[in-house]
């Protein structure tokens, strides 16, 4: 019981911390979550994390919220999911409620906007670092199909603006075909 409570507490504080210091949308927060829960706490494996991100993207709603709910559920069941849900939404909810009350002063404050601008460059570096790690992990497995799927998915979203859900379906379809063809070939070889 004590152990469970300490997991909830760790889950809440880690998620709250990440949520409070992450500016911008889901793609900023995902690399940070990956760093914390996969590399830092080692609660989730990298492959499992990517599966969870795919589920988060396949359902509606903010990706950051979806991903952290899934991490919470994976680590500590339904209570875990609720704990990470609140830890994710409280920081922006409190921040925006306060800003909403003083918003015209906030928008014009030169110091605040200069610091925010500086932070953005740091955020860009953090995301780039995470992407380099993820990309090299795909490349390290030395599977041509995976590398191709990654490149095609990149081109389809970045240049062609294809819907995210379609790209996930595309990846899933190619992956399934690969396994089915492989099994069929193995069966053929065995006879």
């Amino acid at each position: 019981m004590e152990k469970r409570k300490s997991i909830y507490r760790k889950l809440f504080s880690s998620t709250f911390y990440i949520s409070a210091f992450t500016f911008g949308g889901g793609y900023v927060i995902i690399p940070l979550m990956k760093k914390k829960f996969v590399e830092g706490l080692k609660w989730i494996e990298e492959d499992e994390m990517l599966n969870l991100i795919a589920i988060a993207q396949s359902s509606p709603g903010p990706i950051a919220v979806n991903t952290s709910v899934l991490i919470g559920y994976n680590v500590a069941g339904l209570v875990g999911a609720l704990v990470s849900l609140w830890a994710t939404i409280l920081p922006p909810m409190i921040t925006l409620s306060v800003i909403s009350m003083f918003y015209s002063a906030f928008i014009k404050n030169a110091v605040i906007s200069a610091i925010m601008k500086g932070m953005q460059a740091g955020v860009a570096a953090v995301i780039t670092d995470a992407v380099l790690n993820l990309g090299s992990n795909v490349a390290k497995k030395k599977e041509l199909i995976s590398v191709l799927i990654m490149l095609i998915a990149f081109i389809m979203t970045f240049f062609l603006k294809v819907n995210v859900v379609l790209i996930i379906l595309f990846g899933g379809l190619i992956g399934t075909l690969k396994v089915v063809l492989h099994e069929r070939r193995n069966k053929g070889g065995g006879e």
Binding site: Y27, L50, S146, M150, V164, G171
Partner: peptide
């Protein structure tokens, strides 16, 4: 197949 696709999306 979905995992590398997600990596491409994030990139």
């Amino acid at each position: 197949g979905i995992r590398p696709a997600v990596t491409g999306l994030i990139a």
